[in-house]
């Protein structure tokens, strides 16, 4: 159920070739990164797409389809597939829409996948802080969209679990208990929100999967994962789940004391891609955050995906054109030293 990462095949150097390369040191300064590739062999690469949308009432389904096209996702690939969309609904409150993936992004994603021939699309979430999931749907505004469009929803917090060996090995958890639905779909899609986070630095498509883990087994909040280590748990979940795609809602994100108490910030973008570390690294650049300073991204680099700019082929808008630094809180340790010096 996973999409294999793309490797950029680079020829390895013989000792003689390496010596010759060193002799032309003047050229190394110019092409140092290329030499690093040569020295270390194949490198993970990925593509991400940035699409601009100033408002949620824009034609988001069309924008997402455009992203699919740019990323080489064809109707042939999607036709007949069962899609699970996992939005971020950690703790909705009425009138605080910048906390959650916006319902119109969910609607747009559903329409886009169905238009490419998906057999089914289900929206599923296990809210991290609230065990009244139905109230979460109502307060987030998602209930109306689901009802109007007849989109099925599953509460992951109370779903029967399937135990899977922990393929990440970053925490002491030998296994992870996922909701059984992850075994019943073909694609798992992270439909995340672009936010700062006071424990993890940033919460994007990878962190969003905390909400997949059923509250029945992990609690409200998912404190088992906090105890095991947040960056480590993010990596374990993603390494084991092997999600297929990510769409990050940065039309209005959250800066400051995220993921709940921060303030709205308009970036006007959707960021998409097959590779989640690459998507999240691109989001970080848009947010003015150095992805290498986010622990889980740094550890994911060249394991679960690329995070360095030179290894991420950018489609759609350049991140530089939509760059809008998110406010960080100096008093929050996880925010210290995150600011990117790029640009």
């Amino acid at each position: 159920m996973t999409t294999p990462p793309t490797y950029t095949e680079q020829p390895t150097l013989s000792r003689r070739q390496l010596l010759q390369a060193c002799l032309v040191g003047g050229g190394l300064a110019v092409s140092g990164f290329s030499l690093l590739h040569w020295l270390t062999g194949p490198r993970l690469t990925a593509q991400t797409f940035i699409g601009q949308a100033k408002i949620y009432e824009a034609d988001l389904a069309n924008l997402i389809r455009q992203g699919f096209q740019e990323l080489g996702i064809t109707p042939l690939e999607i036709k007949g597939k069962r899609i699970l969309l996992k939005p971020n609904l950690v703790e909705p409150h009425q009138s605080l829409s910048h906390i959650n993936t916006h319902p119109l992004v969910v609607r747009g994603a559903v329409e886009a996948f169905l238009s490419l021939g998906a057999a089914s699309v289900v929206v599923a979430e296990g809210p991290g802080h609230r065990h009244d999931t139905l109230l979460v749907l109502e307060e987030s505004g998602l209930a109306d969209v689901l009802y109007e469009d007849r989109i099925p929803f599953q509460d992951l917090n109370i779903m029967d679990g399937v135990v899977m060996p922990n393929l990440g090995g970053q925490t002491r958890m030998a296994s992870l208990t996922f909701p059984r639905i992850v075994k019943e779909v073909d694609w798992v899609v992270s439909l995340a929100k672009m936010k700062t986070h006071h424990w993890a630095g940033a919460t994007l498509s990878m962190k969003n999967f905390f909400g997949v883990m059923p509250g029945n087994y992990y609690g409200w909040p998912k404190n088992v994962l906090h105890q095991a280590g947040i960056p480590q748990s993010i990596l374990d979940i993603n390494a084991t789940l092997k999600p297929h795609f990510a769409i990050v809602d940065g039309i209005i994100g959250m800066e400051g004391d995220g993921p709940i108490m921060g303030t709205p910030v308009q970036s006007g973008v959707l960021v998409m891609g097959r590779n989640l570390p690459a998507v999240d690294a691109t989001c970080c650049r848009i947010m003015g955050i150095n992805p290498d300073k986010i622990e889980y991204l740094r550890k994911a680099d060249q394991w679960l995906g690329p995070i360095h700019e030179s290894l991420i082929e950018q489609r759609g808008e350049s991140w530089r054109t939509v760059h809008r630094p998110f406010a960080l809180v100096p008093e929050i340790p996880a925010h210290q030293g995150l600011r990117s010096s790029q640009l």
Partner: peptide, 18 residues
């Protein structure tokens, strides 16, 4: 009450009815 925290980084969290 929230789920069980009161303030985090000096910001009081939102109450939850349940």
């Amino acid at each position: 009450w929230n789920f069980g925290s009161t303030t985090v980084f000096r910001r009081e969290l939102h109450p939850l009815p349940e």
